[in-house]
């Protein structure tokens, strides 16, 4: 499933890199420990987190993640936004908490087309 379809379906606010939404999403990873995300996420994952520190952008890039989905409407600071735009990493925003949106995405991504 394409990132753009997911973002549309769940009405995520696209904060950065709107031109990078036509990628295939391989699955998701939910964690707030960046060291854990470095070790255990998979390329193409959508990463669900409440961490807004600018290091999230570097981690997403190093792991070739499809996007970072920030939960609870936790808006990132300017530095994080700027870095994400520069590095062309999509930052998405949802009012849902991590458990809820992880569940919704899991159901959606496990549907057979």
């Amino acid at each position: 499933m394409k990132l753009r379809d997911i973002a549309d379906t769940f009405d995520f606010k696209v904060l950065t890199a709107p031109d990078k939404l036509d990628v295939e999403v391989s699955g998701g990873y939910t964690s707030d420990l960046l060291s854990d995300v470095m070790a255990n996420s998979r390329p193409g994952n959508i990463w669900i987190t409440l961490q807004t520190h600018q290091n999230i952008v570097a981690v997403a890039r190093l792991r070739s993640l499809a996007a970072i989905l920030l939960v609870n409407n936790r808006a990132p600071d300017e530095e994080t936004m700027k870095t994400a735009e520069q590095e062309q990493v999509p930052l998405l925003l949802t009012p849902d908490p991590a458990f809820l949106i992880t569940g919704k995405l899991y159901l959606k991504l496990s549907q057979k087309d």
Binding site: D32, S35, M38, N55
Partner: peptide, 14 residues
């Protein structure tokens, strides 16, 4: 340590 450390939480030092 993994917990509550800059490396554990943020993977690397900004």
């Amino acid at each position: 340590r993994e917990g509550f450390s800059i490396i554990g939480q943020l993977a690397f030092i900004p």
